[in-house]
Design a protein around this nucleic acid. Structure first.
Lengths: 224, 224
DNA sequence: ACCATAGGTGTACGTTGTACACCCGTCAAG
DNA sequence: CTTGACGGGTGTACAACGTACACCTATGGT
């Protein structure tokens, strides 16, 4: 069975999906494909290239923008589509963050994303700033703060109620504790009981509300 | 001259500042200190621990919140203080992103950050969502999109006007090009001619405007 | 029938983090 | 003054990584 760039990329995505990106090395991937490591280099010029290709694969999974709807629904639903894709491929966020060169597929997505604004009457100026304000949110993720111990990390789990660890925590970081306990509805403790999807949409809508206001009143940056 | 954890961390920060975090290995750091690599492990339990410690060093550089000012000015100026620190240590963003466990110093900063809201009358509920919405912005950075080729990467430079590369770009990614040329005031081309600080404050203020509105009208999440 | 070429193989190198055994200088207790 | 524990620097070694280079082999166009 012959290899191909497509086959290599698909296998890499699958392996990262299952084992996490940390377990993805040229050697493990080669073994997965029943081939010697160096064989991959006939289809991929380097590991960076491999990762770029993997990003391309998942970018292709993001839905294209829908018909003639208003900018806000179009943008919103596309971002949420990106988010479901990134949810399927949990390694993607991390890989995306480390990409230094943008592949054509990524540029194409970005271009089309910008188009959703420009084609619906946004000024180039406002669109530019909005893109910066959205930042990585256009990919459907945000820099999370408290959360997500990598699968496989030793994270002594949520603190047990009444434990010394928790008391120490309460003394030194009372504010964090208040947030944490509140968001866990009073039951589980420090562990993340909050709804990621809700948080994401909350932040997204906050931003979109702001953008809507600026657009409505014809905002433009004061800079020449 | 004896080593110490402090000395090791300071040297690591200095080395990362000068050479970039990519050039920071246990070996290079040891050599910098005129010592054998394994000596570091008497002061630092692993490279992860080293990076955690480096984060602690720079977190300590962020200004504490000022007096009794209104929440918005307090939060805003603190975030901008964090930003100037992160600007001094350009590797910090990348390192912060990869941290998986939060050190006491990081938790303390977060706690104090949350306190700026709670102490000024924000509900626990709203504060929680606001923290998520701010995300990494509380550290003074955002996921940049177009920019910042790592120093040392081969990035064929901004496209030359009239080059075939630029024409290709114009055909395939017209929207990106419009944004890029506009933000570069018509002179330089695809390269980033835009003002990072302005973009950061624009996005930050957009968010803070939204938060202000929610707080003013006593917003609370509908969830039980 | 030829031979160029695409694609898989084998070996090898340099770099990384770090485990483990060692060894030495300092200082407290006898 | 001796002793012995111990904090801290050393040396060697290993496994895993990305990948350069030379090689082999089956395919397919001329």
């Amino acid at each position: 069975m012959r290899l191909s760039r497509e086959a290599v990329l698909r296998a890499a995505v699958a392996l990262a999906d299952e084992q996490g990106v940390a377990r993805l090395s040229m050697r493990t991937l080669a073994e997965e494909l029943g081939v010697v490591p160096m064989a991959l280099y006939k289809h991929v010029s380097s590991k960076e290239d491999l990762l770029d290709g993997m990003v391309d694969v998942i970018v292709a999974e993001i839905d294209p923008p829908l018909g003639e709807r208003a900018w806000r629904t179009t943008v919103r639903s596309r971002i949420l589509s990106a988010r479901t894709v990134l949810q399927r491929h949990r390694w993607a966020r991390q890989v995306l963050e480390t990409r230094t060169t943008r592949t054509p597929a990524v540029l194409a997505y970005t271009d089309s994303f910008i188009g959703m604004f420009l084609d619906r009457g946004f000024s180039v100026d406002l669109t530019h700033h909005v893109m910066h304000a959205l930042g990585s949110r256009m990919w459907g993720f945000t820099q999370e703060l408290f959360d997500a111990p990598e699968p496989g990390s030793v994270q002594s789990g949520p603190a047990q109620p009444g434990s010394a660890q928790l008391e120490e925590m309460a003394r030194r970081f009372p504010n964090i504790l208040r947030i944490a306990t509140a968001s866990a509805h009073g039951e589980g403790v420090v562990g993340r009981g909050c709804d990621d999807q809700f948080e994401f949409e909350f932040a997204l809508d906050l931003l979109l509300d702001g953008v809507e206001g600026l657009h409505a009143r014809g905002w433009t940056s004061a800079r020449p």
